[in-house]
Design a binder for these strands. Sequence first.
DNA 1: CGACCGAAGTTACACGTGTAAGTCGTCGAG
DNA 2: CTCGACGACTTACACGTGTAACTTCGGTCG
Lengths: 347, 347
Amino acid sequence: MTDPAGPEATPTPVTSAAVARRAGVSRATVSYVLNGQAAGRVGARTQARVRAAAEELGYVPHAAARSLRAGRGRIVLLAAPADAVPAFGPLFADFLAGFQTALHHLGYTGVLHGAPAASPLAAARDWAELRPAAVLALHGPPLDAAAVELLKRSGTAAVLTTGPQAPPGAHALLLDQREAGLRAGAHLLAAGRRRIGVVLPADPRLAAFAEPRLAGVRDAAAAHPGAEVRPLVLARTEESATRLAARWPALGLDAVFAYNDEYAMLLLRALQDAGRAVGAAPGRIAVVGADDLLLARLLRPRLTTVRAETAAPDRIAHLVDALIRDPSAPPAAHRLGTFHLVPRESA
Amino acid sequence: MTDPAGPEATPTPVTSAAVARRAGVSRATVSYVLNGQAAGRVGARTQARVRAAAEELGYVPHAAARSLRAGRGRIVLLAAPADAVPAFGPLFADFLAGFQTALHHLGYTGVLHGAPAASPLAAARDWAELRPAAVLALHGPPLDAAAVELLKRSGTAAVLTTGPQAPPGAHALLLDQREAGLRAGAHLLAAGRRRIGVVLPADPRLAAFAEPRLAGVRDAAAAHPGAEVRPLVLARTEESATRLAARWPALGLDAVFAYNDEYAMLLLRALQDAGRAVGAAPGRIAVVGADDLLLARLLRPRLTTVRAETAAPDRIAHLVDALIRDPSAPPAAHRLGTFHLVPRESA
DNA sequence: CGACCGAAGTTACACGTGTAAGTCGTCGAG
DNA sequence: CTCGACGACTTACACGTGTAACTTCGGTCG
């Protein structure tokens, strides 16, 4: 477009050498100028000439060459195995957008990789090919020690993991799911409920999130003599919800905490279809969901839910940056956020 | 872990040279063996030795070095600007998972990049740094000719774009949104409806999807004398839906096609709250959604919706592969899938 | 017996970048 | 006038790969 040699005449790649030729300087000078290391090395006029040449040619540095030279690149890899897809949602999308933006401002390229792998080690191998500065393993099968070691040996400065337990050498990003259960349980118990069902998704890939939530409800119940907690398994289908609702009389529960607003909605609807009343009033079944999705406000009764107040994505990005700059920092657990209850009509 | 020199004693990176030393061969031999070019060049015993050495050392090729040498890498970049996040959803997550898996089997690394950019050209520059084999621009502001040219000059073999119009030089991945409107409109008209509202999201970033859907309804209506189509703007909030429902009597519509199941749900709920009956029966307001989300089945009445039958992600992956192998293929539009109607209770 | 050939490897270069170390005037101080 | 210091660059090397071109060597054929 701004190419003076004509539109089709230049299949030659635009390298820093091309910029150097055009500006009439050496390649090293170009590198110094374009990386801001020119103070006291290159004169102002020359700098301007280099910048102009780069602009005119549409020069883009070759990230591969750069990371080859530097040993590691400026890529931050967000690894979320395709297996863990159910975890995607509006919350995750928002997080992703904010995080990548923040990384971009810090000079990194945040990138999401979702291909599934046969084993943690195989996954680590795939990731290591890109020689990322940091790897943030979001969900899926936890990394093991061997995987972390492989990443570190291939130059990854920081390995972070979500979930309660991080393998040796990796940092943990902690969003204590127990707290979600704790908040929901406390709310229900304060309202006088004593026989609480906890809906767990049938999908085993979500167990890592669901189990601690159940444990949290149990913790809350421990303080109340006579309180009882009952796990209930539910698949993400209408049929499964209908079956569970049919069993309801035998269960004798007066409250439920569902894994998710979606699961809450499934069960709530099935209970209503089976002729049982849902709501906060005594005698009705109290239902609490989680994640505060849009649909929670559209249900009738409106869904009481537990919501994560996540740390701003920027803060996580800065944390990652700090860990990259100081790779020797001892692995630690970093708290990601807290849960609180959003009371509405259903409990 | 399998490192004989001890756990902490090897900060030295594992390169193909290390593998070569260990196997007692030259580096070139390692390269030939590990890339499957060894037929007729390297003996079986030597191949086995090389493979064993690579395994023991945990060798991972350096993608940067590889793409430096090859001119371009094996990365396929899925560009979905953070601005376009509302487009994320279960559908997109499923697509992403399948697509990345398929690419993985073809030897590519599919990667999602979501950082926003000031301009198409700036975005292209960010992407070009990674020297991807192909770029698949999913949503957001359309690429312009300059951006495509920059990518191609930096070695990108194929540039694909969703949406109706692709800039010169780029291939178009076409999911004709008009068809969604066409199907919904035809269904409503066949049921005798003549005054059809079309809900458009207030978010301007979704206009690229919404406008063609509206056009589709108009096309359907053109065949029916007396049919009228009325665009309605709705934000993704309860308040907005309530306001729209309040205006309903003045509008005098007997049917609605909503941009999305979520928007349909918002409006449906607001209409019900305002005391208006929704359903397929004459006299009720007919509502058709889109995308067939889980919530469509959980609403009462159950939501009639339009669903995209997308081409399998594998097929798209293979298309991308073909375009990378033959970069000279003239830009064309590739049809991605078709829409069909899922009749339920609301229309 | 010499020429030729194929198998089995090896040598050597290129890819684009960052940066330490070197060069070459010029200017100021002694 | 000499010498060192300094500004403004350039030279040269390293990073880890892939692959074309070359070597070496045992065997075959004319």
